[in-house]
Design a binder for these strands. Structure first.
Lengths: 135, 135, 135, 135
DNA sequence: GTGGTCTAGACCACC
DNA sequence: GTGGTCTAGACCACG
């Protein structure tokens, strides 16, 4: 579990944790059924409060990424069909893309360069996935 | 001034404003001496409380990014540093794109759909820009 | 606002507050539209944390007893039709009655005495309501 | 042993058990020297964890209400005080009835319906008692 | 040992 | 001034 926190960014810590656990799950570093660190272990590792770790996991559970079981721990769920309708999912992702576009504007990165950057990062992501799949 | 706010991200609004102004200044999109909207105008434009807009400017002033001159308005200060190199800017944006890619994975949106969504949102953005007659 | 808290009973403080505010509203001591003490004022008066007071009010808002308005305060709602179906409401009340019945058993108070006690307390309640209605 | 638990009240389960045993002892329903179920039996009867049942008994033992004798079981101690007077017991129950009346008001359940609901629940309670062959 | 809840303090956005 | 949220600590129920 590699989670890097930025306490000065203003982004709630529990969301940073949730986001990065999600990334680890997506990249294939974690597989369905795998046990994740317990709330206590995660809190200790990241030096955050147990409640903050618990909130991160609760967030992920509500998104269907993992499952919390009383007394036994925390397990990754299969990336099954999202309960949300496709239009809702697109809209949600679109909102995140808008933020990226604004940032690109501020950083003076043109549309074509942005598209190229996306392609590059997608290739990297798929590459990492394949790598995990072999190990 | 293109500032786009996300009220659900958990990031304080005043920080979102400050961060985007800083990004624009760092990339050279805004240059030393450029005038920024007044607190009042900014609040109206972004539909936020004047207190919040004032707090964003206060944050930027305390960091030496801009200067508030009584009666004449708000101007970007020379920050000494040269604009960020292209590679640095790409890297910053790439980190945000990675987050989007992860989210797309969990929302089960494929690479081509993601690219199409980006194109769509880029078109929307350019359309909004033209409407407002800003660069 | 007369609220009496018992910190040793094990009943969460925020529920005790909610229950007693509800009782005040029901008895007619408070009327629809009336302003209630602000979260801060209530917290100070009862010497509890502001969050605890806020949680009590949030609980009451979710039950439709009062309304919280950003920046202006907290107001009693009309005791309009409950959104719950009648069977649900009966069941909810029945659960509370069961607790009373068990307590009566433990205190060795017979069924008829329990019924008489209910009649007595109902008469008191209606009496208080009429009194408030006149003032 | 009639103990009825409410898992949604927020009152710790071990306290609910302890409080009801104390109420029964205070009213004379349980007498000094009476045997109580073992921790194991109590846990099974109430469908709670043995730890929780043990904690309830530990609480009662620390208050001097009962005595755990290794190997022979659990017995009520003489508490010195005479059983509560009838008026005191009625007053205790009355406070709980008041809460029910308030709840009935908010759930818009009339006095007669409330009385009918009490009769119904009393009948259920007596039925369950007969089934279990206890007093 | 596991996760869940209640109380608390600090900070944010809004009027 | 108002209510809302995030982080924290302590305690509870359960395996």
């Amino acid at each position: 579990m590699f989670v890097q926190l930025n306490f000065r960014s203003g982004v709630p810590v529990y969301l940073q944790v949730a986001q990065q656990v999600k990334a680890a799950a997506a990249s294939g570093a974690l597989r369905p059924g795998d046990a994740l660190p317990s709330v206590r272990a995660l809190a200790e590792e990241l030096r955050i409060n147990r409640n903050t770790a618990a909130k991160a996991y609760a967030e992920l559970e509500s998104e269907g990424v993992l499952e919390l079981r009383q007394g036994s721990g925390c397990f990754l769920k299969a990336n099954g069909a999202s309960p949300l309708r496709r239009a809702v999912r697109s809209e949600r992702l679109g909102a995140e893309l808008d933020a990226v576009i604004v940032q690109a504007h501020h950083l003076q990165i043109g549309d074509d360069d942005l598209r190229a950057l996306l392609d590059e990062r997608l290739a990297d992501f798929r590459g990492r996935q394949r790598q995990r799949g072999q190990s």
